[in-house]
């Protein structure tokens, strides 16, 4: 295998459990360089956990997570921090530092990791803010930002150190259509313009499929479907069809498991006691 086509992130036989709940039960994922890879699945399938495993904030119970040839769970703190400098992560909430304004938030990684003079930091920050269209908002405090703007500032911060990869945790959740459109466009454009590799964790099928090159569908700790958006349309899995088309009923039942309805109604007196 030549280094060009070696995936940037390769996950093999990943097992992870939180308490008694199994979150991953043998997951294999490859994230190819230069592409936008989406990881989708219903809420609670551990999509965010996956990003934390890639970022080394969590360690798998079994299996391997390799990023750019490095085995993440085996790295020592110093090496892990060096690797993280080459990764950006966009949290669901933005995770902007509330005691700093927009400019200082974007400057934060530069000031922490480089000894650049202040004038150069200023130039870099303005460049990054320009890329997300918020150069004019540099003096605002984080409290003055709308949710969409906060995510764009966080994006500017994530690309401040020119990383090789950006991890997006639910970037579209809770956004109005306009900021959603802006984010979709930004993610794709930044990926191509800066030569990044992007990983999007999301359950917003429409927006994600629009920009993804490669999609993994996760459910119950396993990969249930994998392919390009076009391939997945015709994927031979009832579950994948239900998820991608947002059908209310299918393999994932509408009802939470319960005893028979008629029986349950007749057992009313017993149920009533339980409330007392």
């Amino acid at each position: 295998m030549s280094p060009d086509i070696e995936p940037l992130v390769s996950i093999r036989d990943l097992h992870f459990a939180r308490g008694r709940k199994t979150i991953f039960d043998g997951v294999d994922i490859d994230i190819r360089r230069g592409q936008v890879t989406a990881i989708m699945g219903p809420s609670g399938t551990g999509k965010t956990t996956l990003l934390r495993l890639i970022g080394g904030q969590l360690r798998p119970d079994k299996g391997s997570v390799r990023v750019d040839g490095l085995e993440v769970p085996k790295l020592r703190t110093r090496e892990l921090y060096r690797l993280r400098q080459r990764m950006g992560m966009l949290f669901q909430s933005g995770a902007l530092l509330t005691d700093l304004n927009v400019f200082d938030n974007v400057a934060f990684p530069l000031r922490e990791h480089t000894d650049l003079p202040e004038s150069m930091i200023r130039d870099l920050v303005l460049m990054k803010l320009e890329a997300v269209g918020l150069r004019g908002a540099r003096g605002l405090t984080t409290a003055e930002l709308s949710g969409g703007m906060a995510r764009r500032v966080a994006l500017a911060r994530a690309i401040a150190l020119d990383p090789m990869m950006i991890l997006y945790d639910e970037p579209f959740t809770g956004q109005d259509p306009i900021s959603m459109g802006v984010l979709v466009k930004l993610i794709r454009e930044l990926n191509d313009a800066l030569g990044l590799t992007s990983v999007i964790v999301s359950h917003d099928v429409q927006e994600t499929s629009a920009i993804a090159d490669d999609i993994y569908l996760l459910s119950d700790g396993k990969v249930v479907a994998h392919g390009s958006p076009g391939e997945l349309e015709h994927y031979d899995s009832e579950w994948a069809r239900q998820f991608l088309k947002a059908l209310p009923d299918g393999p994932v039942p509408f009802h939470y498991p319960a005893p028979d309805f008629a029986e349950d109604l007749l057992a009313g007196s017993e149920g009533g006691r339980a409330w007392q």
């Binding site: 970022g55 904030q57 921090y81 060096r82 690797l83 993280r84 400098q85 990764m87 950006g88 992560m89 949290f91 669901q92 909430s93 995770a95 902007l96 530092l97 509330t98 934060f108 990684p109 922490e112 990791h113 911060r157 991890l167």
Partner: peptide, 10 residues
């Protein structure tokens, strides 16, 4: 998630 975000920013 600010602390977690810092960790991810190394």
């Amino acid at each position: 998630e600010q602390l977690s975000g810092m960790e991810m920013m190394a």
